[in-house]
């Protein structure tokens, strides 16, 4: 039998009870993740981040997750204990958040944080963890790892912070990386570099990547397969290089509404939202 997919999610719902009724952030989506780069694109409120968090069971109460099936390499993550889940988080599946300023520990040096991540998931000594952390900093193209190891997060730039974050997340050797808007807080000039580093490491290790972003063009460039989400459902699945073949009016609308320096238009296309998009059944992205 062939190796199970890194992820198989069927009919995933994420719900939040509110005073005015239950808010459904994710409404019955199904997808798989192989050893590929999977993009999830949508606007704010489309449920893309909630999908990423649900995979790691990181939905805070009173929010709830339900699904017919949610398998991580064949292991049913809906039913495993919280203790097992903690080992899987970071160990088998890691997550990179948007802004390194808020996701790194401000009172611990960058290097110590990476070493701590390593020690949390592998029985290695301090010295070995330090060596490995330095190697990781080197892998994410930080020029002077020895110096950066001892710096605090506020002493490094956003781009360097995000690279340190990537180093930390990849250090325990996870097979799945979930990157939620990993470059949105960065300047354009460092964005590309950070993405290339992430891409190289993820492909080099044969990992599965879930890349969550609002930027369709960016995702198209870095992903093999793209899920387009709208109102908690998947409205379309595209191949990365074939975005121009997108059929759904929402996808086309998103593509056309971004101003493009090289192809100016007197007026930007405005997206007319069709209420039917909300109600159409979710497109399956299972492999």
């Amino acid at each position: 039998m062939s190796e199970p997919h890194l992820l198989d999610v069927e009919n995933l719902w994420v719900r939040f009870p509110t005073r005015t009724g239950v808010f459904e952030a994710v409404r019955g989506i199904s997808f798989s993740l192989g050893r590929e780069r999977l993009g999830i694109v949508g606007e704010s409120g489309s449920g893309k981040s909630m999908t990423g968090r649900a995979v790691l069971r990181l939905i805070r109460r009173p929010g709830t997750i339900s699904a017919d099936r949610m398998l991580m390499k064949g292991e049913d993550i809906l039913r495993v204990s919280e203790r097992r889940m903690r080992a899987l988080r970071g160990g088998r599946a890691a997550m990179i958040m948007q802004d390194p300023k808020f996701s790194l520990n401000p009172v611990m040096t960058v290097g110590e944080q990476i070493a701590e991540a390593l020690r949390a998931h592998a029985p290695i000594g301090r010295k070995a963890a330090r060596m490995r952390a330095l190697e990781m900093l080197d892998e994410v193209a930080i020029r002077d790892p020895e110096r950066v190891y001892d710096l605090y997060p506020h002493e490094i730039s956003g781009g360097m912070g995000q690279r340190a974050m990537i180093a930390m997340m990849l250090a325990p050797g996870p097979e799945i990386l979930i990157a939620d808007e990993p470059t949105s807080a960065l300047d354009v000039s460092v964005r590309l570099q950070v993405l290339q580093i992430m891409d190289k490491l993820v492909s080099g290790r044969g990992m599965g990547l879930i890349f969550i972003s609002h930027d369709l063009n960016l995702v198209a460039r870095f992903c093999d397969r793209i899920l387009i989400m709208y109102a908690g459902r998947i409205v379309e699945v595209c191949e990365g290089g074939k975005l121009h073949e997108a059929r759904h009016p929402y996808t086309i609308g998103l593509l056309n509404s971004a101003p493009d320096l090289l192809r100016p238009r007197p007026r930007l296309a405005v997206l007319e939202r069709d209420p039917a998009w909300r109600e159409a059944p979710s497109v399956s992205a299972l492999l």
Partner: peptide, 22 residues
Amino acid sequence: RQLLEASIGLNLGARGAPAPAV
């Protein structure tokens, strides 16, 4: 130039093929 290249480089994925017309 550097700024232009960085900003255009990010969009190359879509630039390979023209955006679909509505």
